[in-house]
Design a protein around this nucleic acid. Sequence first.
RNA 1: UGGGGUAUGGCCAAGUUGGUUAAGGCACAUGGUUUUGAUCCAUGCAUUCCGAGGUUCGAGUCCUCGUACCCCAGCCA
Length: 563
Amino acid sequence: MSENSKLEPSNFIRNIINDDLKNNKNDGRVHTRFPPEPNGYLHIGHAKSICLNFGLAEDYEGGLCNLRFDDTNPEKEDVEYTDSIQADVKWLGFDWADRLFYASDYFEQLYEYAVILIKDSKAYVDDLSYDEMRALRGTLTEPGKPSPHRDRSVEENLDLFKRMRAGEFVPGERILRAKIDMASPNMNMRDPAIYRIRKVIHHKTGDEWCVYPMYDYTHCISDALEGITHSLCTLEFEDHRPLYDWFLEQLPVKCHPQQIEFARLNLNYTVTSKRKLNELVTEGLVLGWDDPRMPTIVGMRRRGYTPESIRDFCNRIGLTKTDTIIDVGVLENCVREDLDKRTRRVLAVLNPLKVVIENFPEGEVEYLDAPYHPNNPDMGQRSLPFSKEIYIEQDDFMEDPPKKFFRLGPGREVRLRYAYFITCNEIIKNDAGEVIELRCTYDPETKGGNAPDGRKVKGTIHWVSAEHALKTQVRLYDRLFNDPKPDSKKHEKDWKSFINPESISTCDSACLEPSLVDAKTEECFQFERTGYFNVDSKDNFNGKPIFNRTVTLRDSWAKQKNR
RNA sequence: UGGGGUAUGGCCAAGUUGGUUAAGGCACAUGGUUUUGAUCCAUGCAUUCCGAGGUUCGAGUCCUCGUACCCCAGCCA
């Protein structure tokens, strides 16, 4: 028995599919689709759906997953989004092969089906205004009333619908509705709209059409035309399922996919709604869709998340119909885990404090071997230049340290990682009383970090040689919001008031080990003792790479400090 | 009684047709290893499954009655 064989997740959708397979439903096929509307950038919530749909196709023999753009509302959609969505799905590691579709590919077919509905007296053209329609729709507890145009003749409906398509009417003047049941307790069944008039340019079909089909009508038919077996969507469409089924029952389609709903992803300390993300971008609260603080795929990518970590996350959180909020800690843990095994370790001082090694010869440079990964020798090593003047992290020195503080303090000895033991002899302060420099001595016998006399030292800190340091900018990112549920309806304040002012801070005088000059765009590293960082893909700092903090390392010292 | 859903530890979540001690992950705690207070390893962490009744030799799983929360009145998706 192979202990390392990863068990496929068990969830209710897989159970349904397994049953279907057992009963030979759909001839044993599993065919899903990921159907985004191209009206915004993909975010972590979409990743859940992508991993579900494409993941199912990967896991089942012969499984397929289509990418289909649900582009029935030209007013909101744009090629900018169809492009970015494809790039994001690919980046996540999924492949739709030659099955890239657009709902707009089916406009003609959809129109013909609407004609069938009209001929069967299952649809009619209504002249009511938007407000009149709403008034007759009823409420949640009261039934709606039929429109006065509900019983128009087939001929008249056919003529009117043809003229709608021909552009004879103004938007809002006429609408095609399904004739179902105005008294249904399900609002979706109260003669829902099928076609509305919109005289705008469609990103794909241009000005070919001025009537556009609605989602409910389009989605089920598109699924059927593509031979989808399991049409997975989020919970809010549960009420739409009877309508999904109704259309397919009326029409001569070749198959009838099964719609199954699951709970959408909610993450704490962030927002995942296209509308809100859009607002953050357009109001300049973040620097764009790819701002590393954004939960968008492009944002997370720029932040340093790997596709593997996102997929792992999606597999870990499970799939149910329960409305839940996942702790971002789970996501952060996934990147840490992935990055831990794949990144090289380097030394980088974010907030430098100058240290002069008094007994180290002036002008001399010594090169010290340092492995790139303590647990993986295959990653190789590099040489670190060491000299009389170095920088250490400000946080690694305390003038009056508490007992449990293992780092540098007056008279204390610590190890410089892969270098020497040093002892702090003197503190130099500026006029404001701030420590600006430390005078230390090193023990030449401790080269590499071990004392021949066997004496131990409690702390090991990182450092960078002053004259060799790569001085560049490091950007520290943190959670975008400081409230776990910024958009909770229970708050009185606006969700945007919970934006974490410390969600970004920059270190402009960071000193990194020189090997990092060659770091390539999107390359990830672990800065020892501080976190995982990757090279920003857009900006540079006077020609030098800028590093973004993906996530901090676990820090049990910080926990202890706060006790 | 508008309709549709969901309730298993701090956060997720398995639990196929009722059968012994309620998976697993995250978080947390403790101990070990460690030249990252990282990683890694070990151990602990629900006498109980929203509540109350009931059926049964036996119920998280079945029945009844409640409770809480989510979604629906776009010519958005």
